[in-house]
Design a protein around this nucleic acid. Sequence first.
DNA 1: GTTTTTGTTGATTGACCAATCAATAACCCA
DNA 2: TGGGTTATTGATTGGTCAATCAACAAAAAC
Lengths: 195, 195
Amino acid sequence: MPKIGMEPIRRASLIDATIAEIGNAGNLEVTVSQIARRAGMSSALAHHYFGSKEAMFVSAMRHVLTVYGAGVRGALSAAETPRDRARAVIRASFSGVNFRREVIAAWLNFYVLAQSLPEARRLLRVYQHRTVSNLTHALRPIMGPQAREVAHSIAAMIDGAYLHAALGGDEPDAKAATRRIEAYLALALSQAHAR
Amino acid sequence: MPKIGMEPIRRASLIDATIAEIGNAGNLEVTVSQIARRAGMSSALAHHYFGSKEAMFVSAMRHVLTVYGAGVRGALSAAETPRDRARAVIRASFSGVNFRREVIAAWLNFYVLAQSLPEARRLLRVYQHRTVSNLTHALRPIMGPQAREVAHSIAAMIDGAYLHAALGGDEPDAKAATRRIEAYLALALSQAHAR
DNA sequence: GTTTTTGTTGATTGACCAATCAATAACCCA
DNA sequence: TGGGTTATTGATTGGTCAATCAACAAAAAC
């Protein structure tokens, strides 16, 4: 039965299963057995590849952040004006891949993990810093020194929308969140131009 | 040793200890024994008064929400203009009692609890609804129909600031959060007046 | 063709913990 | 003063689970 080169396949399955189980349970009290079962293998094999449950969580987190980062970069590459670059960050945050119940629940729990796991905290800080940085660089050409404050405000609104979505019953409303944050962006830009 | 009328005292101690332990651990994986020890009693007594760990969590949550609600009401009662009423909600959110590491960590974990515990979800939704409602009513007189959207935006920024603070190393920066959100409020108001 | 590496699992270990129980003691009222 | 109520805890129970181990199988290497 054992075919060669299974490691990357198994790891990917386990990471997907980890996110799915966290999303399903809504918290980190998921057992390695549950994750392994969903990924179609024994818990012993999960331990074989990741060493510990904690390591599985961190890998799942890194994966979510990587996918998110790729989405942002993709959207940014298609943007031309400063305003479009800011909108790209906002839109990527609420795009289908990232803004799903399952993934939102995972994000929420990663914040909890970051409270006690330094590596998780480090990863989330990198994400926060990048978001603010992306937004600041996008806005600086048209807003000058105010760019940083506005970037922080937009970042807060994005995170707030995620937290709000975590309480919503059905699928989250990406449209409303995008509209609201873009309205703020428009407002901030109009004021900057009226200066 | 047993004095009469201990129940309310014990309950209050346990609730405080629950919040402190969650804040200390950063997650909900705190044992009833830990909480009871911090509150100066045996775990059996904690079970005697609350029945279950879950009930202790919900009571702690209700307490945090009650304190927060009282803070908002107090600030609102001292406000006269619509703008001051909106600022009251913002300021209360970042006042010393609520915006402390310990309490912020508890909030974060209550969101996680809400993912699997209907009662916790209900409580948080009440809080969300009240915040938006307070802000909408404050802003309606000067913003008309836009009030609701702006209220949602401010609410998102408040929640986002909490999430951001949960990752901060030292004591959270209430000043910066308040300044940023009030700046947005000023912006929204100036646009409403320029209409 | 045998040895090493990679893949895989059932079973076990060791620890932890929520909840319950039995027992003790102080307080209050009739 | 003695039975009901409230306060309190040490010990136990029953269950869960992360992590490890021993063992087996297939592929690769030599």
